[in-house]
Every structure is written in structure tokens, then in C-alpha cells.
């Protein structure tokens, strides 16, 4: 039961953190110089119209009261009207979030699979030229900003080689599949439209790759160092002495315990993915929540900014809890220490 209590407490704490985050977002939104109502109506609107809107937006109330109204609405999924799309922010979020999740999940899968494989190869051929090349590669992956990868990939695969479509989610003339999850690749598969899936996948691949590079390199580095550490442990020597084939030792006995640090940093990588999506979606014109948020920021669209940050905060918090669960499932010691600390 100890581990369940541990996770329960984590969820309980997270709720308070998210409440705190909502206060922080509210403060940020209110320190903005200028009058949100004036911004919404434009410079030429008569004063009485602006004053009416101020009253309607509760802008004349004291700040704590304003926060109360704001939080009540936000909890009901009502973030107000986007000052620029002129639609409900909630509707915008519902439309744009799936595209972002599709992108971030795909890049997470690429980062996990490729990163862990590269790390394992690197550890297997430790101190050979293969290891050297892979380590150099991961160094560059870690230090290169996501927007640089995005531009380089766009330049190389999209424009110079023309292997992949440079922007958007679907080619012209291909009908969108019926909306089930909002992720076009998934929806196309569910509807059995394989041609649509293939087209959507090709559009998805390049931004997802650009987004995954940093996390991929990080995963590779951590997998390598943790496998290299475990490689010198006694239990591996014992298994070798028993004559267990190297391949089996590597895949069955070395990889699993070595993956725990890799998975622990996955939450941080997910965070990096969410934030780098702001740049990558902008560059590839990917109609996701991050591009929406980025545009909202560049236009000072207050309601939209608040909603995007809060939703990304919730997503990140959930990811953190999931990572705790997975690490706990993989590593009995963590479950035990959670139980012992009861």
C-alpha cells in the first residue's frame, strides 16, 4: 500500500502546485501594462464601450476578487474569448491541443527508441570509434537549440533534398479524416484511410525529428553512462563467468536496470519538448497549441496565454506523476523507500 499512498500524496501536492501556478499566471497576466479591455476593443472604440467591457471582465474589482472570478471560470473550462481569434479560448485549445500532443508524443517515442538504442550501442562498443562518434553526436544534439535543428532539417530534408513536405499537417486535396482524437495520424488509422495516414505521417516526421533531437541526445548520454557504470558491477562478471552469452547479458540483465536514470530524466525531456514545440511549431507552421500560444504571446492575447500556460502546466504535472509510477514499477528500491518513509 505504501507506494499507492506515495503516488496519492504526489497527486495531492500537484493540485496545490497547480493552484499556485494559476495565481502566478494571474499575476503575470495582470502586470501587463495597458488596459486589457482597451486592447480588446481597439484604439478607436468609444470610452463607454471599453468601460462596459471592463465591468463585464470584472476589471474594476480588487485583484483577489478578480482572481476568484478567473479561477471559477477556468475550472469550468471557460478561459474567456481570445482577443484575436475572437473565439472561445477553450474551443481554440480543443482544436489545437491534439496537434501538439501528436507532435510531442511522436518526438518522445523517437527520442526514447533511438536515444536508448544509441546509448546501448555506445555502451556495447565502449571506448571504440563507434562510441566516440556517437558521443560526439549526442554532445552536439544536447547543445544545439531546437530552432536550429528545425531550420537545418527544413533546409536539408524539406527544401534541398525534398524528401519530406516542409510545412503543415496534410497535403492539399487530401481530405481530413473524421475527428476522433484530433491527431490526424491516429484518426486516419482508426478510419482505415492508409493513404491519409501516410501523408499525415510524412508531414509529422520532420517537425517531430527536429523536436526530438535534444531529448534523444540526452537519453543516449544517460543510457550510455548508466550502462557503462553497471557493466563493471559484480553481477555482470558473475553472469559472464556462468557463460551466459554477451547478447543475453546486454539485453536482459544490463539494459533494464540501466534504464531507470534514463526514464527519470524523461519528464524533463517532456518539458523540453513542450517548450521547444513553441519554436518548432512556429517554424513548420504546425497548427498546434504551442504555435497558438506563441502567437498569443506575440500579440499579448491575455486569455489565450493564461489558458495555454495552465494546460501545459497540467500536462507537465501529469507527465511527472506517470514517470514516478514507471520508475517505481521498474525499481523495487524506490517503492520500498517510499514505504519505509511512511
Amino acid at each position: 500500500m505504501g507506494f499507492v499512498t506515495f503516488i496519492g500524496r504526489r497527486i495531492f501536492q500537484s493540485i496545490f502546485v497547480l493552484l499556485g501556478l494559476s495565481i502566478l499566471i494571474f499575476i503575470i497576466a495582470r502586470i501587463m501594462p495597458g488596459d486589457p479591455a482597451r486592447v480588446a476593443m481597439g484604439a478607436r472604440a468609444p470610452d463607454w464601450v471599453v468601460e462596459n467591457l471592463r465591468e463585464q471582465m470584472h476589471l474594476n474589482d480588487p485583484l483577489p476578487v478578480q482572481y476568484g472570478y478567473w479561477l471559477r471560470d477556468a475550472l469550468q473550462g471557460d478561459f474567456g474569448i481570445s482577443l484575436f481569434t475572437r473565439r472561445n479560448v477553450a474551443d481554440d485549445v480543443r482544436e489545437f491541443l491534439p496537434a501538439s500532443l501528436e507532435l510531442v508524443f511522436t518526438s518522445g517515442i523517437i527520442a526514447g527508441v533511438v536515444g536508448i538504442s544509441l546509448g546501448a550501442i555506445s555502451a556495447r562498443y565502449k571506448d571504440t570509434w563507434i562510441d566516440g562518434v556517437l558521443r560526439m553526436f549526442s554532445y552536439f544534439g544536447v547543445v544545439t537549440p531546437a530552432f536550429v535543428f528545425a531550420i537545418l532539417f527544413l533546409l536539408l530534408f524539406g527544401l534541398a533534398l525534398q524528401w519530406l513536405p516542409p510545412i503543415g499537417r496534410l497535403s492539399d486535396g487530401i481530405p481530413k479524416p473524421p475527428v476522433i482524437t484530433g491527431m490526424i495520424t491516429v484518426d486516419a488509422l482508426l478510419a482505415g484511410q492508409f493513404a491519409t495516414f501516410w501523408d499525415a505521417f510524412k508531414h509529422l516526421l520532420m517537425p517531430a525529428l527536429a523536436l526530438s533531437m535534444g531529448a534523444l541526445a540526452q537519453e543516449a548520454r544517460i543510457t550510455r553512462s548508466s550502462m557503462a557504470d553497471n557493466l563493471s558491477k559484480d553481477y555482470i562478471a558473475a553472469e559472464r563467468a556462468l557463460g551466459i552469452p554477451e547478447r543475453v547479458i546486454m539485453s536482459r540483465f544490463l539494459l533494464k536496470p540501466s534504464l531507470i536514470p534514463t526514464i527519470s530524466v524523461f519528464a524533463l525531456d517532456f518539458a523540453a519538448g513542450l517548450s521547444n514545440a513553441f519554436l518548432v511549431e512556429l517554424i513548420f507552421n504546425w497548427p498546434g497549441l504551442s504555435r497558438y500560444g506563441m502567437n498569443a504571446m506575440l500579440r499579448k492575447d491575455l486569455n489565450a496565454i493564461s489558458a495555454v500556460i495552465l494546460i501545459l502546466g497540467i500536462t507537465f504535472t501529469i507527465a511527472n506523476i506517470v514517470v514516478d509510477l514507471v520508475v517505481g514499477a521498474l525499481d523495487p528500491r524506490i517503492r520500498l523507500s517510499a514505504e519505509r518513509s511512511e
Binding site: 502546485v17 501556478l21 518539458a271 500556460i309 507537465f316
Partner: peptide, 22 residues
């Protein structure tokens, strides 16, 4: 530490972008 947690609840780039943008 709870205040610290709040600031760590969102990736730093996103909040930095938000603050810089206003």
C-alpha cells in the same frame, strides 16, 4: 519549497516567453 515547486511546474522557456512577451 512549495513556491519553488510552482515555478518548476512549467518549463522555464514557456514562462520566460510569456513574461518577455508582455
Amino acid at each position: 519549497m512549495r513556491i519553488t515547486d510552482i515555478f518548476l511546474a512549467v518549463p522555464p522557456l514557456i514562462l520566460a516567453l510569456a513574461i518577455a512577451s508582455i
